[in-house]
Nucleic acid binder design. Structure first.
Length: 226
DNA sequence: AACCAGGACGTGA
DNA sequence: TCACGTCATGGT
């Protein structure tokens, strides 16, 4: 009944193309993807992540990017890779001040360093198994969006990710009320899309890309000049 | 120089 | 439940 959900997806996909989320720093040579990229985004490769280390990198990124520009979260990720190579045990063994210093460029260093310790213990306890949504939500620092991001991008589970951009775009188009709850908006997408991990992954990424261009609260000057 | 960024938590009504 | 203050650094 909400054909607009799928039509908007097709329109955005035709506009921007495959987005290749979630970006990975840790793309080693054995994981060379179809696009030929060796780091960052990997359009049309839906096999990633292929290793536990890559899953863990996505989980770290999902915490670090909370209410934070990805460019800032990525700096913190690079710091963590440099000093731990995304080894969970090394993260846990870090001195607290060292961890905070690495997290600093992503902001909220006190909270995020604590959250990273918590979710690292949780990740290690999984021993390679896939957690349920409710299990991830019990981890302090993991709310609805972070849980869905982890499930969709790290574990390839069909959980649609809603963020502030999603709500902003669709309420601006008068397709939903701006006060719609996270779960309601999530179900609206899931009820009107094929049960497809690649489509869920691309749709969320496309909405972020589109919102960055046209739905900033305060548009950048260079965009306004276009 | 304010304003915002790929949110989550604790509190009080 | 739900609104509101708080957390923090970096880009514009």
């Amino acid at each position: 009944m909400n054909e607009s959900i799928l039509k908007i997806y097709e329109k955005l996909y035709n506009l921007y193309g495959p987005q290749g989320w979630w970006p990975l720093i840790d793309l080693e040579s054995e994981n060379l993807n179809k696009s030929g990229a060796t780091h960052g985004y990997h359009p049309l490769n839906y096999e990633l992540p292929e290793t536990e280390k890559q899953k863990y990198e996505i989980i770290l990124g999902s915490i670090l990017t909370q209410n934070t520009a990805w460019t800032s979260a990525e700096k913190a990720l690079l710091n963590l890779k440099k000093i731990t190579n995304f080894n969970p045990e090394k993260i846990l063994s870090l001195d607290d001040e060292v961890l905070k210093k690495a997290v600093r460029p992503a902001g909220f260093l006190n909270q995020k360093s604590t959250y990273i310790r918590g979710i690292t213990k949780f990740f290690s306890s999984l021993e390679g198994t896939t957690p349920s949504r409710n299990e991830i939500l019990k981890v302090k620092g993991v709310g609805n969006e972070t849980a869905d991001s982890i499930l969709l991008y790290a574990y390839k589970k069909p959980e649609f990710v809603v963020d502030t951009y999603t709500r902003r775009i669709f309420s601006n188009l008068s397709l939903v009320d701006e006060k719609i709850s996270y779960m309601e908006l999530k179900k609206l997408f899931e009820n009107n899309l094929p049960l497809s991990v690649p489509i869920y992954q691309e749709y969320h990424a496309l909405l972020v890309e589109h919102a960055k261009r046209y739905y900033r609260k305060k548009p950048y000057d260079d965009i306004l000049k276009i």
